[in-house]
């Protein structure tokens, strides 16, 4: 993988409980994730992907970090990471 593929755009979603990461060097802009999102939280982003097509970005208000987009992404460009619970 080229080094450019490792760049990512991160966003805190689900009331700050999780991260939505998109790797523009892997995203081909097919849009399959947008249709599979149960909350319709994913929209097109300003960031361009590997083929010069728009990548996606999640709405922090709507996203519930369910991971449906991560599953259907054929290129593994989306990574959802839930934060570990902080110890009190």
């Amino acid at each position: 993988m080229e080094k450019t593929a490792l760049k990512y755009v991160e966003k805190e979603v689900h009331q700050g409980k999780a991260f939505f990461r998109i790797f523009p060097g892997l995203c081909k802009g097919c849009g399959l994730c947008r249709e599979k999102c149960p909350e319709e939280a994913i929209s097109w982003s300003e960031e361009l992907g590997v083929y010069g097509t728009p990548t996606v970005v999640a709405d922090p208000e709507k996203c519930i970090a369910c991971g449906a987009c991560e599953q259907v992404c054929p290129d593994c460009a989306i990574a959802i990471e839930r934060k570990a619970k902080e110890k009190e």
Binding site: M1, L26, K28, C30, G31, Y51, C73, P74, D75, C76
Partner: peptide, 17 residues
Amino acid sequence: NLETKPHKFCPGCGHGM
């Protein structure tokens, strides 16, 4: 194989999945 990613399939191709 990380060196060959992004892979050669079309955008939205089911092969990736």
